[in-house]
Design a protein around this nucleic acid. Structure first.
Length: 321
DNA sequence: AATCCCACCAACCGCCGTCCA
DNA sequence: TTGGACGGCGGTTGGTGGGAT
């Protein structure tokens, strides 16, 4: 399979397109369509290679291209789809009418990727970075993530103050770590950041081979899924399979018996199921989570966190060498 | 005012898969 | 079956503009 000589030909112009060149290309395609891209430059009177013409047309001149900043919806869609598809920019672009793969790729690399990194989230795996010793150092990022959630949480199913959620979830994860030091080898703040986003990990939301909770379906249907299905509220149902996981953000005291906790878990699962089948039940779902967040005063100062961190650090740290 | 630095993004590069003679 | 032509894709580059020093 030989390489195309297209752009290797000498004498062809490279670099930025002039308005005249653009106009020639537009006029030609309007009249004749693009046909063979290789033949097009000659027919259109352009001293460019076909590839360059195609790129210019598909990425810039096409009439259906949407200009301007990405909306919050588009940004969330990109993040969701990227967590599922990886760097399949053209596939992602297929879900964003008017956006090109190149534009999305650029936007990812210049904006979203940095945002995720700042939040302590690996932009490749969409999971918290596992260098857990940095978790505490990443507190500001986690809180920033909570604010970011405000931007992304378009469903508005969760009405809680995002910072409260972040604090509660972080504390929640810390407790889990300290109580699970025999079974866990890493500080899993996955669930924490899941909820910071107002939804669980996109990977967990979808039935696929990476999702240990749902192995009944494959990925083949993904491209057919309506976009709406990519945005979902916190998915409590997943926790029922995680025996080691403390029920998330529920109104139970830490002293409650395991049995009671299981009852609450089941209640939450039922509530979630009800919530998903009946969106009007949002308020119940939200209100029932309030007490947990009340535990953590929104106005808690730095001393509050200092205390937690000091306590945490004074405990036998399961991950220290 | 000059210089440096950095973010952004259009455009290029090179590889891959498909089509077809 | 082979290999050239072509379109498509993802990674990378380099020009540009704006802010900082």
């Amino acid at each position: 399979m030989g390489r195309s000589p297209c752009c290797d030909e000498s004498g062809l112009k490279k670099g930025p397109w002039t308005p005249e060149e653009d106009q020639k290309l537009i006029n030609h395609i309007r009249k004749h369509g693009h046909g063979s891209w290789r033949a097009l430059p000659k027919q259109a009177g352009l001293n460019r290679c076909g590839k360059s013409c195609r790129l210019r047309w598909t990425n810039y001149l096409r009439p259906d291209i949407k200009r301007g900043n990405f909306t919050a919806e588009e940004e969330q869609t990109i993040i969701n789809l990227h967590s599922l598809l990886g760097n399949k920019w053209s596939s992602i672009a297929g879900h964003l009418p008017g956006r090109t793969d190149n534009e999305i790729k650029n936007y990812w690399n210049t904006h979203i990727r940095k945002k995720l990194i700042q939040m302590g989230i690996d932009p490749v795996t969409h999971r918290p970075r596992t260098d857990h010793l940095n978790v505490l150092a990443a507190l500001p990022q986690l809180l920033a993530a909570a604010n970011f959630n405000n931007l992304l949480n378009l469903n508005q199913n969760i009405q809680l103050d995002a910072t409260s959620v972040a604090k509660a979830q972080l504390l929640h994860s810390m407790i889990q770590v300290l109580s699970n030091n025999n079974t866990s080898s890493s500080f899993d703040i996955h669930h924490t950041t899941n909820n910071l986003f107002g939804q669980s990990s996109f990977l967990e939301n979808l039935p696929n081979i990476e999702n240990p909770y749902d192995q009944t379906q494959g990925l083949s249907h993904i491209d057919d899924q309506p976009l709406d299905s990519f945005s979902s509220p916190i998915r409590v149902v997943a926790y029922q399979h995680d025996q080691n996981f403390i029920p998330p953000l529920i109104s139970t005291s830490p002293d409650e018996s395991k049995e009671t906790q299981m009852m609450v878990k089941n209640k939450e699962i039922m509530k979630y199921n009800d919530h998903t089948s009946n969106p009007s039940s949002t308020s119940t779902f939200t209100q029932d989570h309030q007490p947990w967040c009340d535990i953590i005063d929104d106005e808690a100062s730095d001393s509050y966190w200092k205390e937690i961190i000091e306590q945490t650090c004074s405990e036998p740290w399961p991950f220290r060498e």
